[in-house]
């Protein structure tokens, strides 16, 4: 019983970690640029398919395919930011939503055309498969790996945002675009790079997530609500908020589906409602 509970907790944390990697970029886009980007999951999908393509067609090993997923999604992010997103920074939220949901449908259609509608396989390397025994518990090796990756990314991101000049430029641009530009910070460049970073992390999450979330052309639509939940509950524009939110939602989702399978899919929304009533600005939202 207790072992079960810890197992569920562990799976929830691993699942939440994955949600965090994918969603952190959305938190930045919504917090920093005030842009509602419903197509964020499409960048995760780009990463996922990049992984599958280099693994199955070029024989690249799984671990080496992850940086490729990051780069592919970041590149897609830069191209789309420069060509399309930038034009809509000052548009209304309705325009942004319509534009980005349009991108979602285009990404679904394009992916179906090139790769077909079926689930994509992923071949995890031997050492990431199976279970390890820790203190009498059986923990999935791949889930441990996911948690480790998220710890590394969180530390690296925190360092980037809190300790580097680029991080200070991001924070200054978030606080006040006009003042930042007036003092020589190239806010457009900061936005582009941040958008690319967020897209890249989503792509990395998409690659890491194939084994857990699956990968098919409807991916951006299927998980859109989850990514938005993480940002809404966590508060946009911080790292800490979405991290806690993703972990909490991950745990509730897994626990709900395990303990009360009849209503399992709703548990996460109950959690959202309660959390938003208690923390209307999100767990660690920036007050504007």
């Amino acid at each position: 019983m207790l072992g079960n509970f810890i197992g569920v907790l562990f799976d929830g944390v691993a699942y939440g970690s994955l949600l965090f990697i994918i969603s952190i970029g959305l938190s930045v886009t919504m917090g920093l640029m005030n842009f509602v980007n419903l197509a964020h999951g499409a960048f995760a999908m780009v990463g996922g398919y990049a992984c599958v393509v280099v693994m199955t067609r070029l024989g690249v090993p799984f671990l080496a395919s992850l940086p490729i997923a990051f780069v592919a999604a970041a590149a897609a992010g830069i191209v789309l930011e420069r060509s399309l997103y930038r034009r809509l920074y000052r548009a209304t939220h309705l325009d942004q939503v319509l534009f980005s949901i349009g991108l979602v449908f285009m990404s679904i259609a394009a992916t179906t055309y090139f790769f077909g509608p079926q689930q994509q396989p992923v071949q995890l390397p031997e050492f990431l498969r199976g279970q390890v025994h820790v203190l009498g518990l059986d923990l999935g090796t791949y889930r441990l790996f996911l948690i480790a990756v998220v710890i590394i990314i969180t530390v690296a991101l925190t360092w980037l945002i809190e300790r580097t000049r680029f991080g200070a430029e991001i924070r200054a641009s978030v606080d006040n675009q006009q003042a930042s530009a007036g003092l020589g910070i190239n806010v457009y460049r900061v936005f582009s790079l941040t958008f690319a970073l967020g897209s890249g992390l989503a792509g990395l999450g998409g690659g890491l997530g194939i084994d857990v979330l699956g990968l098919d052309p409807t991916f951006p639509l299927k998980y859109m609500v989850y990514f938005l939940l993480v940002v809404a509950v966590g508060g946009a524009g911080t790292i800490k908020g979405p991290l806690f939110a993703a972990l909490i939602l991950g745990i509730f989702d897994v626990a709900g589906k395990y303990y009360v399978p009849q209503v399992g899919a709703f548990v996460i929304y109950v959690a959202m409602v309660v959390l938003l009533i208690v923390f209307p600005h999100g767990l660690a939202g920036r007050r504007t």
Binding site: R165, A168, E169, R171, A172, V174, D175, N176, Q178, A179, S180, G182, L183, G184, I185, R286
Partner: peptide
């Protein structure tokens, strides 16, 4: 600027070094 436009999430030293 007239409004001074401090950056709430930057320290004093970061205000100076970031620009």
């Amino acid at each position: 600027p007239q409004e001074r436009f401090m950056f709430p999430s930057l320290t004093v030293e970061e205000h100076l070094s970031v620009v």
